[in-house]
Design a protein around this nucleic acid. Structure first.
Lengths: 333, 333
DNA sequence: TTGAAAGCGATACCAA
DNA sequence: TTGGTATCGCTTTCAA
């Protein structure tokens, strides 16, 4: 059997309570006793059982992240890779750990939320790609489960949330293409029901005279099909895509038609993923500072969890930066 | 306060033990009582507390995966993205959840193993990129912690492990280039101390007359530098790279030198990541069936955990397939 | 400063 | 078939 606090107490000839105090760093414990207990702990390689501790302290030190994606479609999405990487990085060295799940559809997501939160598997949740008006959010809020949102929550200022200035980001990307001399700039949007789509579309529209918008699912494949439609119907000379993967779809479609980038077609993506450097000449992309957003979100979430601060609220808007690369530099030609 | 089993018992006017039995689906419970209890549970939205259950059952239903990477370097590695995606996918719909951590160096990794396993945070561990001879493995084995290895463990047949036939995979990739008429095929290897490097190097050497090997760290950047060295010193006309990201480094170096792919340079990578389709013309790559490996590993791990089957052992070798794309098709020219 | 004892919320054994 | 009760390993009053 594994060694418990009870064992340490017996061997150290003190009470279990004292061992617990030593573990907690309680200053009231006599120095001599503390050293003795610590010595016994280390010789017996004792480590407290987090399961017991979780039960007693009502805290698992686990943070949940539920991805909303078709099973199997995750690998093709550098955004999620970045997101996960950033979360894991932010948690490294802290007492917090990440519990990662995936849910294909909304129904599945509901039950995962239940499994994670109602069963108290995790202490809090990071939500991405959720709509603030989402029924789930209301429920979490109502049950006072700690969570933070990465995304637009301006309509519900009482939520903890961080978002990009997606309007400005899209506007910036579009203006850049305009400045480079592109005339007919299209916007390859994501699913229409997402606020992130709506925000960016608005930013795009504000920068262009004759808006040309097409909606598409995420992923290179859907984007490629949408781009083909755009080429067939409207012959744009530049495309702002909702993310780098979709921009890759555009580039694939362009290659198939022998459209030269950036000469015949300018392309801008979002997220500034490693993909951008892999494209020949480079893919211009809007860096959304996902790392900073994640760090903010986690810090906020931990605060809420620790202080039971479910009522106070903060929201933040993260800045963004246009990373100009070859795919949009027409002026040099 | 949240509703406990005690509450359900009181409201249903039965003992807590009976509620527990209903929850466990114990057939001995009277149908009428069971229905009553279930009704009360559902009206009160009761969900058992996994923390209490974990303590009592000595099982958290959490599986640990510790990534060995510099903090911040994860995003650029589609292999890990695939790995994580596959694990999450494989776990979706099961009672198991993933606990994901990262450790920069070996020392950190040690302490994370301790934190995860000795504290009983997870029930078992999936190890990747570990060497079978690794001291950590001996310790885990000695402590009889459930774990499976994704990697070469032929030297320790008592371990649970699954691996590719890396020798054959590299041999296949190299022969393919030879068949395409490439004369001077170099091998861009990973860190020399990894068995995966050694296995693939051996496969490469077996297929080539004048081996030309250079070692490099993982990642596009290091690979690009290594490729530059190769070009400067040996002018190979084809390169087998240890993974797709490194192959991207090779491609970047080739672009800078105006080497046309596949005409002047043939390139093959490993892992068959989404990257392969993003490269113009496509990147030929060895598909290692990571999904199947992960599924095998998890199935095995769960078996070990559930049946306390720490002694019996199985190892498996996964097949592989060369996915031929444009980067290695010289013959058509 | 230390120890005894009461939980945390579940499971499972032993009687009835 | 059901209820009472010990137990999982730890934290935290309450006394001493």
């Amino acid at each position: 059997m594994r060694v418990t606090q009870q064992d340490i107490a017996r061997i150290s000839e003190v009470s279990q309570a004292t061992v617990s105090r030593v573990l907690a760093g309680d200053v009231r414990v006599d120095g001599v006793i503390r050293d003795r207990v610590l010595a016994v702990m280390s010789t017996h390689n004792y480590r407290p059982d987090v399961r017991a501790r979780s039960l007693r302290q009502r805290k698992t030190h686990l943070i949940g992240l539920v991805l909303k994606r078709e099973v199997g479609s995750l690998q093709d999405d550098p955004f999620f890779a970045m997101l996960i990487a950033e979360v894991v990085d932010a948690l490294a060295g802290t007492p917090w750990h990440l519990c990662l799940d995936i849910a294909a559809d909304t129904a599945k997501q509901h039950s995962i939320y239940d499994e994670l939160l109602r069963t108290r598997r995790v202490d809090g949740l990071i939500l991405v790609e959720s709509e603030a008006s989402d029924e789930r959010i209301l429920r979490l809020q109502q049950d006072r489960f700690p969570f933070v949102l990465i995304g637009n929550a301006t309509e519900m200022p009482e939520l903890h949330a961080i978002d990009n200035d997606n309007f400005k980001a899209a506007e910036m990307a579009t203006r850049h293409l305009k400045d480079q001399g592109y005339q007919k700039i299209a916007f390859l949007a994501g699913p229409q029901n997402l606020t992130v789509t709506r925000d960016r579309e608005a930013g795009y529209r504000s920068a262009v005279d004759n808006p040309l918008v097409i909606y598409s699912d995420f992923g290179a494949h859907s984007a490629r099909e949408a781009a083909d439609q755009l080429f067939d119907l409207h012959q744009p000379d530049a495309i702002v895509a909702m993310d780098d993967t979709m921009a890759m779809g555009v580039i694939q479609a362009a290659r198939a038609r022998k459209l030269a980038i950036p000469h015949d077609l300018g392309v801008v993506g979002f997220n500034d993923t490693p993909l951008c450097d892999h494209v020949e000449g480079g893919l211009t992309s809007v860096n959304l500072q996902i790392g900073n957003m994640v760090q903010w979100a986690i810090r906020r979430l931990v605060d809420v969890i620790e202080e039971d601060d479910v009522f106070g609220s903060h929201q933040a808007i993260m800045g963004c930066e246009l990373m100009v690369r070859g795919s949009s530099i027409r002026s040099q030609r």
